[in-house]
């Protein structure tokens, strides 16, 4: 059973989101990292790039696959976690610590699930 912290919000495409002073921090859930296996690289956007709710803003690579990471919100990237470039394994080891980007100037928030609803969603997909 994967870890699903109560205080975060989730997407059906397995991203987690937290909102602090209207800046949204986005990462991949424990369920996602487990399904993807050992991650070997992350392609990240740059600061000032626009992201759109429901569209891919990054991708993660395992040895034999690449998967998109979708943005739950529409806005502008204000910070990028460049540590991931050198240590993609931190997504496997600490998915809720290994955030990808922080997004500000948010104009739209897509449909988000709370922890309970996301747990049910994962149950379905498992």
């Amino acid at each position: 059973m994967s870890t699903i912290p109560e205080e975060l919000s989730y997407t059906t495409s397995h991203e987690w989101v937290s909102n602090e002073d209207d800046v949204y921090t986005i990462g991949l859930t424990d369920f996602a990292q487990d399904a993807l296996g050992d991650l070997v690289f992350v392609n990240l956007p740059q600061v000032d790039d626009e992201v759109v709710a429901g569209e891919a803003f990054a991708d993660v690579e395992s040895v034999k696959a690449v998967s998109d990471v979708f943005s739950p919100v529409t806005g502008v990237v204000v910070e990028v976690n460049e540590d991931l470039l050198d240590a993609p394994e931190s997504i496997n080891e600490d998915p809720y610590g290994a955030w990808f980007v922080r997004v500000g100037e948010v104009t739209e928030v897509g449909e988000l699930l709370d922890a309970e609803a996301y747990a049910a969603h994962c149950e379905q997909e498992a």
Binding site: V40, F41, E61, S62, V63, K64, A65, V66
Partner: peptide
């Protein structure tokens, strides 16, 4: 670094 390539 095969995830760059067309087969993936």
């Amino acid at each position: 670094l095969q995830a760059r390539e067309q087969h993936i």
